[in-house]
């Protein structure tokens, strides 16, 4: 079943959340379920940058968390180098954890506010068993790799700019010597002038270290620029897949077309939205859009499934 040479694969992955209502409802009948990820199959080749685009609530972040095993899928399989990651135990599980790292959206919570940058990196290295002088020299290497001055090592996260924090987040992931980097909205909190710097850094790491990158973003333009393959996600499903050229210039799915049409286009788009009519296609789309999970529900489910 598993063909050799396949690097990172998802097979019909589903993640369902049970909507918790009142106690009575829980006792009397089965609580309603919502599928945040609804049967996603993907194959990501080694050394490529795979882009995942979609709007908030489409399930792309859930999928990212499944990839790095912060949450377990309800059904389906994640295969890494041909092995089912749900069955990994002990040292193998640890190796997988280290091999697949994540870069978070900089929302101020991706770095511990009370730890200096040096400590953030040192702790990551010590989790890999690197300490002492080796750690010191590796920290310097990591800082250079992400384009940061080692003078920033004694700073606290709030003393850095958003772009610098994002670079630290990347360095922390690199400290684990990963094979795959899952970057969840790595630039959406940054100014336009800095977005390019971070995206280019990811591309450089992909080229120089052969790092496989899964780039998740709501910004189709950013993803199209950096990735070799793109998947467009809507309502928990991958609705379109292809190269940037295919997705941008000959989109097949109505949602992709709507997404493309919505991107602001400067002077060319002046006042074009005076009559925001809703197309029949969009109407149909809306009716099948999944109900959104309340944010706290997601948080609780997440912590419950990790614990």
């Amino acid at each position: 079943m598993i063909q050799p040479g396949h690097f990172f694969e998802l097979h019909d992955v589903r993640k369902e959340y049970v909507l918790r209502r009142g106690l009575l409802q829980r006792l009397t009948r089965r609580a309603p379920k919502v599928a945040a990820v609804d049967g996603v199959s993907l194959s990501i080749e080694r050394g490529t940058i795979f882009g995942l685009v979609g709007e908030s609530g489409c399930g792309k972040s859930t999928l990212a968390q499944i990839m790095v095993r912060l949450i377990e899928p309800t059904a389906g399989k994640v295969l890494y180098r041909g092995a089912d990651v749900a069955r990994l135990r002990g040292e193998e599980e640890r190796a997988y954890r280290h091999a697949v790292q994540m870069v978070f959206q900089d929302s101020g919570s991706s770095l511990n506010p009370r730890k200096r940058i040096r400590r953030v990196l040192a702790e990551a290295l010590s989790a890999r068993g690197v300490g002492g002088a080796a750690a010191r020299s590796e920290i310097a290497t990591l800082m250079r790799q992400v384009g940061l001055d080692t003078a920033l090592l004694h700073r606290f996260p709030h003393e850095l700019s958003g772009g610098q924090r994002q670079r630290v987040g990347i360095a922390r992931a690199l400290a684990m010597k990963p094979e795959v980097l899952v970057a969840d909205e790595p630039v959406s909190a940054l100014d336009v002038s800095l977005q390019g710097q971070i995206i280019n850094l990811l591309c450089d790491l992909n080229r120089e270290l052969g790092l496989t990158i899964v780039l998740i973003s709501h910004d189709l333009a950013v993803v199209a620029r950096a990735c070799t393959q793109i998947g467009v996600m809507n309502a928990g499903k991958i609705v379109e897949r292809g190269t940037p050229q295919q997705v941008l210039f000959s989109p097949v799915d109505p949602f992709t077309r709507q997404l493309l049409a919505s991107v602001p286009r400067g002077l060319a788009g002046r006042h074009r939205r005076l009559e925001p009519d809703i197309s029949p296609a969009e109407k149909a789309l809306r009716s099948v859009r999944q109900p959104r999970l309340p944010a706290d529900e997601i948080g609780r489910q997440r912590s419950a499934s990790i614990a």
Binding site: V192, L194, Q195, G196, V222
Partner: peptide, 26 residues
């Protein structure tokens, strides 16, 4: 000019994204 260049566009271009080097002054 540089800001306009940085905006990611759906023009199918590839390669490094244009950026403004450095950071705004603290």
């Amino acid at each position: 000019r540089q800001l306009l260049r940085c905006i990611p566009r759906l023009d199918g271009a590839s390669g490094p994204m244009p950026t403004i080097p450095g950071l705004p002054p603290r």
